[in-house]
Amino acid sequence: MAVVVRRLVLLVLGAFFLVPLLAMAEFSTRGAGGSRSLESWTAIGSDPDLVEAILASVQLAVTSSVLVLVLLVPTMTWIRLRLPVLRRLVEFLCLLPITIPAIVLVVGMAPLYAWVDYFLGDSPWTLTFAYAVLVLPFAYRAIDAGLSAIDLKTLAEAARSLGASWGTVLVRVVVPNIRTALIGASLLSVALVLGEFTIASLLNFDTLQVQVNLLGKRNAGVSIAVSLLSLLFAFVLLFLLSFVGGRRGSSAVEEG
């Protein structure tokens, strides 16, 4: 009985996820007069604006997750070790962006970005700053869980007494032991950045989602193809990252 229920749930959920994807695949491969054609898909590579937007988004996904990790890991480690009184405050600050709608963020950021434009130019990678703020709550939660799972104080003190500088403690002791949490945090960041539309659009940057939206108005087929592509890319990424995390974890056991 339980097996039947489980299969039924799997079936319904699977259909819920797969039907829209299949519909997208079907729509994006429609050719003239009811035939099948890959025209929409081949058009992706031949649209220079689109290719540029895809590259910009991928680059942003990388820079944003790197920036947020570089900011958060040392800060959160230091606060746990040395300034525990500030922990609540920093948690509050880091979680704050989740409560602020993107549209409100943009209104606040627009004047700021006038200055960013002026000093750093208007290349899309300047969105890294805005996106780092956007992914802060998710990265914070993931890293916080990772740090809670290890005896940070004892490990840091052990490393210190063996002669490690604070930098070494961070790189050689903290980071390897919260690796899974870091992978989780960067995965969330990448997924969020690849799917972000509001901020990029309103600040007039050409990212993937902005291009998808534009394309949708003149060539729905290509727009759907790109959307499907980015979804598949996110799945592959997720699969790869969890595979990397899982594989290293199990090899640790085998070597013994």
Binding site: E157, A158, A159
Partner: peptide, 11 residues
């Protein structure tokens, strides 16, 4: 130093 809690680096 040897600690009360297990302090070996897990990785």
């Amino acid at each position: 130093m040897v600690f009360q809690a297990y302090s070996l680096f897990p990785n």
